[in-house]
Write a protein that binds this DNA or RNA. Structure first.
Lengths: 245, 245
DNA sequence: GGGATAAACTGGTAATGACCACATGACAAG
DNA sequence: CTTGTCATGTGGTCATTACCAGTTTATCCC
């Protein structure tokens, strides 16, 4: 056993346990496809109830680290499945995970009245104003995507260029400044062709094929908070996703 | 209260309860954004323990029907979020859900030695044979995608054209005939251009932009079972996905 | 040796009871 | 009226106990 569970810690026990077990998996101490100790054994080892054990295991199972077979045991997932790609992540984390150095150029931050279709998706009345952020996404310093975000904010809330350049992450700002946690999102992907303006910004030819990614993000109260449109260079970007039944 | 829980039923109580609650939500009896009864109240109403209540609620929460707010209650999700799109579904279900009549032409079913890159992804030794299925996917009788599946099967297992035409679903065959349950998958999406052959099959011009969807599917034991490549017409298909944190 | 059976595992479901953390509203104090 | 406090209701965490349902292994019997 590597670490122990601290009963006085404010972090829940099941979460502490999950962290410990995840470490054992990621360090290779427990090999893929091999069974981990049984729930009754873990109960003894870590001196917590089976309730807690199962809560931790279920958490790791949902993240793709473990899988269970009734009557046989709980097993470590093959490494390929351990990368939790099913989650709602930002562009930044996404590229980092793939070994590409992410970067961005903020082209503009302003307040506008967006097209009606976008207002409707954000569940806002006509002529409402929202924050618009236009960015160029970079991978290893090469432009790979044009991103336009429309963010629903309350009257007294705003985000500045300085905020964005300080953290680089819109999601972190939303969470830390306004307590808004992006929790769910609907996303679509389709093919389009570059307009001359888009082509210039992406340093490609007009009519070159692009991957169009649209996303509507909801917060922890299931209110739409952000509509995003990203145009990716077709030759430099690939969208990756994990699906679970 | 509509239905009751049958304690003698082989179906677990939490699952029975989840079905009942899901019906109340889908029928509109419980409106979006309104709180459902508290866990203590449901305990009394359905005469089961809070353990069971919470198991049912957690299940529905993961499916997107409910969301919780600590200290406030459990709420019905907005309808848009109730469609479980994050799941591993087949092409058929996918189109049906979007109101398009799905169809397919099975172009060929045979056994081949696939390219090394595919063998590697299926974790098979060089020169292994796999089942190849080539299909044209139709939406409202128009070709919208070319699908090539490579399926890992044991020596004594095979799938025939008749099997496929009977059910139309490869996944159902895998499950019912061999007990293989597709559980997880890694998927990528990118842009390519149509070769002359592909263009002919899809009734489009050569070099027209296509959406390339590759998928590696794993079974309940986390073994790769199927590699799929689908080429969609860029002007007739849009990929839709739900993301959850 | 072969085959049926039973014991000893595994995870899955369920009940009960306790306490904690957070949100809300009633109410008293200023 | 405003502010702070406290009671109450909500979901979140945890321990304990019991039994069920699959799987594997040992064992007995032929």
């Amino acid at each position: 056993m590597s670490r122990r569970i601290d009963p006085t810690n404010v972090v829940p026990k099941y979460y502490q346990l999950a962290s410990i077990l995840r470490d054992q998996i990621e360090s290779g101490e427990w090999a893929p496809r091999t069974p981990i100790p049984s729930e009754r054994q873990l109960e003894i080892t870590y001196d917590v109830s089976r309730t807690t054990i199962r809560q931790a295991l279920e958490y790791l199972e949902r993240q793709g680290f473990l899988y269970r077979e009734h009557g046989r045991g709980t097993f470590v997932s093959p490494q390929k499945l351990q990368k939790g790609m099913q989650e709602l992540t930002s562009f930044t984390e996404d590229l980092q995970r793939r070994g590409i150095v992410p970067g961005q150029l903020v082209r503009s931050v302003d307040t506008v009245v967006p097209p009606p279709s976008i207002l409707q998706r954000l569940e806002l009345p006509p002529d409402s104003k929202v924050l618009r952020i236009e960015r160029t996404r970079l991978g290893d310093d090469i432009p790979i995507g044009l991103q336009t975000s429309y963010v629903k904010l309350a009257e007294n809330q705003t985000i500045t260029l300085q905020d964005l350049e300080a953290t680089g992450s819109l999601y972190r700002i939303l969470q830390e400044k306004f307590g808004i946690i992006p929790t769910e999102a609907d996303e679509t992907l389709e093919v389009t062709l570059a307009t001359p303006e888009e082509a210039a910004l992406l340093q490609i030819k007009p009519d070159a094929p692009l991957l169009l990614n649209e996303r509507l993000t909801y917060d922890q109260y299931r209110r739409p908070v952000e509509y995003v449109k990203i145009l990716y260079r077709g030759d430099r970007y690939r969208y990756v996703i994990r699906l679970t039944r």
